[in-house]
Simulated assay, not measured.
Amino acid sequence: MSNADNWQGDVLRDLRGGGPAGQAATPHVPPGQGQAPARPGAPHTPTDPAPQAPPSSGQAQNSSPAHGPAHSGTRPARTPESRPAVDPSLAGASRKPRNGEPFTIRAARAIWRTVSSSVAREVAEISGIAETLQRPVTTGRQIAVTSIRGGAGKSTVAALLGSTYAHYRQDPVLFVEADPALGSLPIRLGAESLRWTTGDVAGIVQPQMSLLDITGYLVQLRNNAWLLPGSQGQIGAMLDFRSYERVMVALRRYFGVTVVDCETLPAEVARVALTASQACVLTTPATLDGIASTHAVLQWMRGLTPHVISGTVVVLTDLSPHSGINTDEAVRTLRSAGPSVHILPYDRHLADGGAIRTDLLARSTRTAATRIAADAFRLSQKRH
């Protein structure tokens, strides 16, 4: 790769205060993992949680200083106060997080792995997925996650995808919440406090700002992942499509992958995100009405810019342990409209809400999330 294409290493050195551009960046070790991300082609054992668990609410922090970062642009007219992502009075409402699958299933799988002959094939598949997720990019990839209704698992899928990219990649990863009224992305990511929002940053960002300036307005989640919230949790918060466009165009050059938690379709910002992103993930509940509505939306999307439907991944989210539909037939029906289709299985840990701990996810959930992330990333690379 030429020096001009190695922009990921340059921005990470900028962020970490490293050496000159010609000096190789030292790979970071994600918290709690004990090793650098897998090399392309190297086996990634199926027993490892993928992606790495986000930090707990006590670890996630807003990296912006008290009066906003210093930069050569115009200082904002106001500096918002930090607010907790979850009202402290609700702290007692949450219970201890559950494992995504019962102990009996985990024990049975451990026995199966000792006698099964398919483990080698499984390791080879995961290695191939890891190689896809670690492919270098010359320009930032933006992946929009949306749905046609609330409660379809949109923010959950966005959190899983972004965490997967942050686990496998070494370049910066950004979560953007573009659903200020109903989004729950900060909660799912374990953010403790929120200050600057997408609308705030739209009026601040300047072309001459460095990555250090930009990250001062973001919530840092881990070494290479940041969050830009849509609001501070207030009801009635709005985000217009011009502010969204300004933020996304300005931030694209700083981050290898940006995952956007959009409003539901057909809201204006969601429509803009569909046409401006390199790939789209459309979530829908695995119910008869959810599948029927999604099929209708896919027909509508076929009339948009041609790349939209070919760059779309549909995710059927199982909201109950026993689905009442024929998922195989549902997948065939939705695929006939042109998109790629995946199923995110029911998971007790996800169903409980709150911050996602990937070490507690069911193995089938981790596998599905990794496959979905790889598929969306592969589609995003087809559009430059």
Score class of each variant (00 low, 15 high):
residue 234 Q to Y: 05
residue 230 G to T: 09
residue 234 Q to F: 02
residue 236 G to N: 13
residue 224 N to G: 01
residue 236 G to H: 12
residue 219 V to G: 00
residue 221 L to E: 07
residue 219 V to C: 14
residue 239 L to N: 03
residue 228 L to C: 07
residue 238 M to K: 14
residue 221 L to G: 06
residue 232 Q to L: 06
residue 225 A to R: 02
residue 228 L to S: 08
residue 224 N to L: 02
residue 229 P to H: 05
residue 245 E to G: 15
residue 219 V to A: 12
residue 222 R to K: 03
residue 224 N to I: 06
residue 235 I to S: 12
residue 240 D to P: 07
residue 243 S to D: 15
residue 224 N to E: 08
residue 247 V to S: 03
residue 236 G to W: 12
residue 246 R to Y: 00
residue 225 A to E: 05
residue 239 L to H: 06
residue 228 L to A: 12
residue 230 G to I: 09
residue 243 S to A: 15
residue 221 L to Q: 11
residue 231 S to P: 08
residue 229 P to L: 05
residue 240 D to Y: 06
residue 234 Q to I: 01
residue 218 L to K: 03
residue 244 Y to T: 03
residue 247 V to G: 01
residue 228 L to N: 07
residue 240 D to V: 09
residue 242 R to S: 14
residue 238 M to C: 05
residue 232 Q to H: 03
residue 241 F to M: 09
residue 241 F to K: 14
residue 220 Q to D: 04
residue 236 G to C: 12
residue 229 P to Y: 06
residue 245 E to Y: 07
residue 241 F to L: 09
residue 238 M to R: 15
residue 243 S to K: 11
residue 237 A to P: 08
residue 237 A to H: 10
residue 222 R to L: 00
residue 232 Q to T: 15
residue 222 R to C: 10
residue 230 G to H: 10
residue 220 Q to R: 15
residue 230 G to K: 10
residue 240 D to W: 04
residue 234 Q to N: 10
residue 235 I to N: 11
residue 239 L to V: 03
residue 238 M to I: 11
residue 246 R to E: 08
residue 235 I to L: 15
residue 222 R to N: 11
residue 227 L to G: 03
residue 237 A to C: 09
residue 226 W to N: 04
residue 222 R to Q: 11
residue 232 Q to P: 01
residue 239 L to S: 04
residue 240 D to Q: 02
residue 238 M to S: 13
residue 244 Y to I: 01
residue 239 L to F: 06
residue 243 S to Y: 00
residue 232 Q to N: 11
residue 233 G to T: 08
residue 218 L to Q: 02
residue 233 G to K: 13
residue 230 G to A: 09
residue 222 R to M: 02
residue 245 E to D: 14
residue 226 W to A: 08
residue 220 Q to C: 03
residue 245 E to L: 13
residue 226 W to S: 13
residue 234 Q to S: 04
residue 218 L to H: 06
residue 246 R to Q: 13
residue 224 N to W: 02
residue 239 L to Q: 02
residue 234 Q to A: 10
residue 222 R to T: 12
residue 239 L to G: 03
residue 233 G to M: 13
residue 225 A to T: 04
residue 224 N to D: 13
residue 227 L to H: 09
residue 222 R to F: 00
residue 247 V to M: 00
residue 229 P to N: 10
residue 233 G to W: 09
residue 230 G to M: 07
residue 229 P to C: 01
residue 233 G to R: 12
residue 235 I to T: 14
residue 243 S to R: 13
residue 223 N to I: 00
residue 247 V to D: 01
residue 219 V to I: 12
residue 220 Q to S: 11
residue 242 R to I: 07
residue 235 I to A: 15
residue 223 N to K: 07
residue 228 L to T: 06
residue 231 S to M: 08
residue 244 Y to S: 05
residue 223 N to G: 08
residue 237 A to T: 13
residue 236 G to S: 12
residue 220 Q to V: 02
residue 236 G to E: 13
residue 234 Q to V: 06
residue 227 L to I: 05
